[in-house]
Write a protein that binds this DNA or RNA. Structure first.
Length: 185
DNA sequence: CGTAAGATGAAG
DNA sequence: TTCATCTTACGG
């Protein structure tokens, strides 16, 4: 995984595992959908200016950028590229692999298909919030981290991003075609 | 099945 | 006012 190439990293993350060791136990999700946000990208949080919220995007690659949005949700990115080149990959969906009972509890009454099929849903299910902001996801000692998943030969679909109004035509969204846990067709 | 509204806070 | 969202309510 070359973290200096954001678009490549977005694809490489598909099939990898997002692991969170919580007091209630280990939660693992298989990443099945991502979006890339680049430095020269009007849709990126970092495009206009450096703020308290988007600060982690300007830092070194491999750290988490967890942001608060719509007044009530958190979404998680992995920061990519060099210091001061503010880029990141948004994790948009995962498949429950381990700790699904904890996920169900975190999400409340909810069909399994909806547990983790969206950037805010998966953060609720996996217990990710402001506390995990700037955690080093590459460090195997971190409670929240990225690990190699089982090798896959699934088809990667490339398409346009969701929920944005600028740069809507950029093909920066990637997902595994066979997964049932995609946020939206 | 589909579309629409509302919740609620940071940033422009 | 808009926003890298989600859930519920309501119409067909």
């Amino acid at each position: 995984m070359n973290l200096n190439n954001t678009l490549q990293t977005a694809k490489d993350l598909l099939g990898m595992h997002l692991v969170h060791d919580t007091p209630e136990g280990r939660i693992v999700g298989r990443i099945v959908e991502t979006e890339a946000y680049l430095a020269d990208d009007p849709a990126a949080h970092s495009y206009r200016s450096r703020t308290k919220r988007n600060e982690p995007m300007f830092g070194p690659a491999g750290k988490a950028y967890v942001y608060f949005t719509y007044g009530m949700y958190y979404c998680m990115n992995i920061v990519t590229n060099k210091q001061d080149v503010a880029e990141a990959v948004l994790i948009r969906a995962v498949e429950p692999v381990k700790g699904i009972d904890i996920m169900r509890k975190n999400r409340g009454e909810m069909k399994d298909k909806n547990l983790t099929s969206g950037p805010a849903k998966l953060c609720i299910a996996m217990g990710i919030s402001k506390q995990q902001n700037e955690v080093n996801l590459i460090d195997s000692q971190s409670l929240l981290r990225i690990e190699q998943g089982k090798k896959h030969s699934d088809t990667i679909v490339t398409t346009t991003r969701i929920g944005i109004s600028k740069a809507v035509e950029a093909p920066y969204r990637f997902y595994l075609k066979e997964s049932r846990f995609i946020s939206k067709k």
